[in-house]
């Protein structure tokens, strides 16, 4: 295949080359987990911004199913890179990254969304200040009559968890940060289903706060859906929320510990 010359412009790779490699801390205070699959365009910048959130940081890239050299770029940037030839599927990378994380605070990002470090610091600070889970305040477009199923599910789940104050704030949305204690109480394997992790955290009484507003709408996965047909990602995330409600019902009672206001049900048997 012949590559077309981009005359008068810098070579595409220069965007990434300009960025200086980072230095992972040996005893990190903050670990940043970045799952990535074919994110060559953005990965170096994501790693660079992530490295600046704290003086003592390690960046872990979970490169899975990449065919565009994302893993090589990440390694060249000095990030700790975990390589998986096959795609792991949604959010599994987060859990694997969290398993490798050594810091007291773990910050979760996505390989395709470049967020300036100044917007990531408030999340880390919130955990330092005592929160167990610090979430992004972004909830997507809600000033309308009909909203996306994912937004609806997030709101409904918070209602069922008795956290109406969180509205649609969710662990499904990146970026978010959590303490080591939170990860061990939630169970690292549950991070593969973020709404489930969200429910466990709230149900176990961890301090879950909406820490900082970071606009991720344009790059949000629900916006990247295909033009035609049913959106597979939408039904995956809705299913995640159902799984979370199921967990709640099986760890409380069939009403999620909500009041029955003295219903005399036996009257109608």
């Amino acid at each position: 295949m012949q590559r077309r010359k981009r005359r008068g412009k810098k070579p595409r790779s220069a965007l990434n080359k300009k960025i200086k490699p980072i230095q992972n801390s040996v005893q990190p205070h903050v670990s940043v987990v970045i799952p990535a699959m074919n994110e060559r365009r953005t990965i170096s910048r994501v790693i660079y911004e992530a490295s600046k959130v704290h003086g003592s940081t390690e960046v872990i890239v979970v490169a899975n199913g990449s065919r565009d050299g994302t893993d090589r770029l990440a390694a060249a940037m000095g990030a700790k890179t975990l390589f998986f030839a096959e795609p792991l599927g949604h959010d599994v990378g987060r859990a694997i990254g969290a398993k490798h994380a050594q810091g007291n605070i773990v910050l979760f990002l996505d390989g395709d969304v470049v967020i300036p470090a100044k917007h990531l610091v408030p999340l880390v600070r919130a955990v330092e200040a005592g929160a167990d889970v610090a979430l992004n305040k972004y909830i997507g477009p809600v000033n309308r009559k009909k909203v996306h199923s994912v937004i609806l599910a997030k709101h409904a789940l918070n209602m069922m968890l008795s956290r109406p104050d969180l509205k649609g704030v969710s662990l499904t949305t990146i970026p978010h940060a959590m303490s080591r204690k939170a990860i061990s109480m939630i169970g690292v394997e549950h991070l593969t289903v973020p709404p489930l992790a969200h429910s466990i955290a709230i149900h176990k009484g961890l301090k879950v706060v909406d820490a900082h507003y970071i606009e991720v709408g344009r790059t949000n996965p629900i916006k990247r859906k295909k033009r035609s047909g049913k959106d597979p990602l939408e039904s995956l995330i809705v299913g995640d929320h159902l799984e979370a409600v199921h967990w709640l019902a099986s760890h409380t009672n069939e009403r999620g510990n909500f009041t029955d206001l003295g219903r005399d049900r036996k009257r109608v048997r």
Binding site: V193, G239, L242
Partner: peptide, 28 residues
Amino acid sequence: IGDHVEALHYVFKEDGARMSYADEIRKR
């Protein structure tokens, strides 16, 4: 809200925890 949890609980018993919203692509 509790009534709705109960309603979902009924459907979980019939259709499983994820109902028809599977996640086979995820390698847990």
